[in-house]
Write a protein that binds this DNA or RNA. Sequence first.
DNA 1: CTAAAACCTGACGCGGACGTCAGAGGCAAG
DNA 2: CTTGCCTCTGACGTCCGCGTCAGGTTTTAG
Lengths: 125, 125
Amino acid sequence: MRIGELAARAGVSVRSLRYYEEQGLLTSTRSASGQRHYTEEHVERVTFLQRMYAAGLSSRTIAELLPCVDSPSEETSDAALERMAEERERLSEHIADLIRTREALDQAMATNRAHRERLRSAVTG
Amino acid sequence: MRIGELAARAGVSVRSLRYYEEQGLLTSTRSASGQRHYTEEHVERVTFLQRMYAAGLSSRTIAELLPCVDSPSEETSDAALERMAEERERLSEHIADLIRTREALDQAMATNRAHRERLRSAVTG
DNA sequence: CTAAAACCTGACGCGGACGTCAGAGGCAAG
DNA sequence: CTTGCCTCTGACGTCCGCGTCAGGTTTTAG
């Protein structure tokens, strides 16, 4: 498939796909005229990339993880696997932090509601 | 305390503090010469702001939530409370997404390790 | 064959949370 | 009084994941 279809299938913009390739995160075979062609597997790849971006990883970091994802049997993946474990740790800490943040929000909302209750009962009573 | 100390205590840059004030997220009393002065409470405030930024909220969004945090009894907090619930939802979805992402990473790492195991046993056996 | 749609490269724009520099004043210590 | 550090405002620079326009080629539909 060509770039437009991949974009539609993966739910991203054509511009993003070209950007991913520019960053070394996505490959493509080229037709004689220079147009990019992709397979089904590339759809998965793009959604994976989206996931990583959503997890707050930068293009450079994702690029460092890809050897681990792509060629799990190569020697070079020793470092990549370690890198991945590292990022997994970061992600876990981030998740924990966000959960604490959510609790802080809950706390604020509860306090707010309590105040309002008091006001209402002061008026009613 | 002055801005440098607050920055150190809260673990952010002086520039960030001035930026927060510029965005209406942080207040300060000024000395006759114009220097900013802060109290202990401002340390908490700054860490709260950091939490919100870490949760992916923009300065503008945080500003919309502050009335709820600061003056829970005012009428204006009706909208703020609703806004806060909204952002809490967003945050929850984001957390869920990150957890799925972590699972994707785990999956990749497991696949990787399996491959390596296979290689090793092929060599050994 | 032709018009429209999709594709190409290259390059500039953008928004947001700051970093950083310039030029000036404030403040405690020796 | 001066040395040195902290602070002030204002303004420009940076990074990054794209959006978008320009100017051209390729593919597809009729």
